[in-house]
């Protein structure tokens, strides 16, 4: 009974630094600079619908590609011997420990017009190609930065699939393809939805990847929000409205995959 008191400092902290700030976002989204209630910020989002749809489109593509690549990789790792699983997992996670700005910067040096890939292709008298500052580069940056977020949750459910369950399926007549569709995928559902959320959420809200690899013509919703708070077009009210819309998208995606509050979703 007494130990409940221990959580009081945190509860106060949580209210001040988590609940109230979110309340402020909602408050700003529905007020003018002078503090009057308005829908105009929300209505103004109409001008940015193309940006919004671009953000969603890019992140959906990136998430799907991460899923397609992540499934075989995680399955392969989950079927290795225990010790090897740890090593392989470390290999997959290691790049995540390097700040994502540096990782994204690395792609700039590879993709730019004068970059390594074009130089390499130049040896065969091919190119140069326009590899950077386009939508493909932004999607590539998303996949590169967030694919470990797909592999990890997939791996952690797949490694729990008992080998004898796979053997039982083989025993009952399953060939490789059926094992995947009838056993592995259904038993990995939880990991798939966690992976989708953990890749989609940072992708749809990024502003660095698009700025560094998109070259200003592929602005995403994150870039617009950033410029309302720190950029030239300072307007926290419009920025808050956008943040609110972004939050709604995230909540929709999460309730779609039915994960809210599930502790397993934490890596």
């Amino acid at each position: 009974m007494k130990s409940k008191i221990l959580s009081i400092p945190y509860i106060i902290w949580m209210i001040i630094f988590t609940v109230i700030p979110l309340g402020l976002v909602i408050f700003f989204a529905f007020t003018t600079q002078s503090g009057e209630f308005t829908f105009s910020n929300i209505v103004a989002m109409n001008d940015y619908l193309d940006v919004l749809f671009r953000s969603i489109e890019f992140s959906v593509i990136a998430t799907i590609i991460c899923l397609i690549l992540g499934l075989p990789v995680s399955y392969l790792i989950s079927r290795l011997a225990r010790g090897k699983q740890g090593t392989m997992l470390m290999i997959v996670i290691l790049p995540m420990w390097i700040n994502f700005l540096l990782r994204t910067y690395a792609w700039m040096t590879l993709l730019e017009e004068n970059g390594l890939i074009n130089r390499f292709l130049g040896l065969f008298n091919v190119g140069p190609f326009n590899l950077i500052n386009n939508s493909g580069a932004v999607i590539l940056g998303m996949i590169y930065n967030y694919i470990p977020f797909m592999i990890l949750p997939l791996y952690s459910v797949m490694t729990k699939i008992d080998e004898s369950v796979v053997e039982a399926a083989q025993d009952l007549g399953c060939s490789g393809f059926h094992i995947i569709t009838r056993i592995i995928l259904p038993l990995s559902k939880q990991g798939i939805s966690t992976g989708i959320i953990t890749v989609f959420v940072p992708s749809v809200s990024t502003f660095i990847i698009s700025r560094m690899l998109g070259g200003g013509t592929n602005d995403l919703i994150g870039d617009i929000i950033e410029s309302q708070f720190l950029g030239n077009s300072y307007n926290p009210h419009l920025g808050s409205a956008m943040a609110l819309v972004l939050m709604v998208i995230v909540i929709l995606i999460m309730s779609l995959f039915n994960q809210f509050g599930s502790e397993e979703a934490v890596i």
Partner: peptide, 14 residues
């Protein structure tokens, strides 16, 4: 789970 940008701007508002 909140996008970091939202955590960032909401704290900024506070």
């Amino acid at each position: 789970i909140n996008p970091e940008i939202i955590t960032g701007v909401s704290l900024m508002l506070l």
